[in-house]
Amino acid sequence: MPLINYASRVINLKIVYYGPGLCGKTTNLQYIFDKTDQQRKGSLVSLATEADRTLFFDFLPIEVAQINGFQTKLHLYTVPGQVFYNASRKLILKEVDGIVFVADLQVARFEANLESMDNLIENLEEYGYDIKEIPTIIQYNKIDLPNIASITELDKEMNPYNFPVFKASAANGQGVFETLKGIAKLVVKRLQGK
């Protein structure tokens, strides 16, 4: 849920990166953090295990644009993708304004993507949210790898609502900002009631 502060003239929006374990959610945030000007970003907070798996969340606040004199701030979160962290994953979804679903194109992760999407829909439902009502985009990640599924095929299974789709190789930054802009635009349009 956006927080619109007329006193400090700030709009805060919460974007959650969702997806199966190791799909590249944290990598997206790290790249955004690395490439964003100092004065436009806060710290990257990562609550991770010793093995660098997300335990609770990553958090990165960035300032993106002025809208009619209001500073728009995106609060970017990732969830822990590992199946058994569902309780924490669900907590992060609370009051979400926009979702980036990061899918892992590796053939071996085909099913994991579908399961994670089902899990997302289910967790949203438990809060009484309908995914169709929430600005959502899908990022097909790891296009740089050799053994990957066909995007058309995966999209047919994963994307019945025709959410906008972005290709990425988050590890080298390709597609990361395109994805971020994609979701930012959707979320702002949503604020407008479109």
Partner: peptide, 17 residues
């Protein structure tokens, strides 16, 4: 009227970061 008079085009431009 926070977001009135802003077109989709304007929004696209806003996010030229």
């Amino acid at each position: 009227s926070l977001l009135e008079n802003i077109s989709d085009d304007d929004i696209d431009k806003l996010f030229d970061f």
